[in-house]
Design a protein around this nucleic acid. Sequence first.
DNA 1: CATTTCACCTGGTGGC
DNA 2: TGCCACCAGGTGAAAT
Length: 287
Amino acid sequence: MPELPEVETIARGVDARVRGDQIVEAWFSGFKQPFKTSPKVQARGLEGSWILGVRRVGKHIVCALGSTYGGSKRNHGSGGAEDEPDREWIVHLGMTGRLLVTTPDAELAAHTHARLRLKSGREIRFVDPRRFGRLELREIRSGSGFEAAGQEPLTIGAEEFALMFRGRRLAIKAALLNQTLLSGVGNIYADESLFRAGIRPRRQAGRLTKAHLERLRRELVVVLEQAIRLGGSSVSDYVDAEGVRGFFQLEHCVYQRTGQPCLRCGTPIRKVIVGGRSSHYCPQCQN
DNA sequence: CATTTCACCTGGTGGC
DNA sequence: TGCCACCAGGTGAAAT
């Protein structure tokens, strides 16, 4: 479901609602997926912890947890500096995951896999019908917390971006989707940025000119930032932390517009499979 | 090693 | 209406 703009929107919303709150009790469903860390271990690490902040890393939502907050101590905490996170709860939404902040009496959605009851009386809920999402608890060792495997699309420089694709024979679309290269780009924003840059999805990544790659990087940043401003794309049932839909789907130029006229030249949009994913492009505007 | 394919899941849609 | 094939915003393991 969610790519960088949707995850960013959700992380911001959750952060605004739960920063400084304390987790009183954690409940988990009994499925094997989506638990990367066993529910028992997660509950042990979560209960009693304070939420120091929530941020996005790639397509992950990272909740920084601490044993202390403003002088208070966790029940069975283990020292450490004041308000320094000692563990992180990492949420990946997969295709259909949702992370919501609700009141305890809010109707329980089908496929709810986690409920974190907070001291304020609110609740964090993770809902995921397809169970492609992942919930993980990590202890923070030696300072630095969770880091994405690849580069952040919003901050990577022109040089580094171009260098990343050098010598690669795979299609540029597949390269954009590879999270160990860039973290955060998914099918919608790969298609939209390629359209705006005038590049066909099947073009070999390593054969694009530096100028083309720089145009692609800039358009990717533009499209991601615009999508964040509009609260992401609500293609199926995506909603933010408050249950509100995004509006960027209204701005899609090619994604899921197969057969419809290109908004720039009127040529019907085509769909092909690249890297196992549906890829939409304009045969006139993209070469 | 780089690249491609497939399995992991449920639900919605459109054809018959 | 019912059944079924097909599709979906992702990713990691297995195969090539």
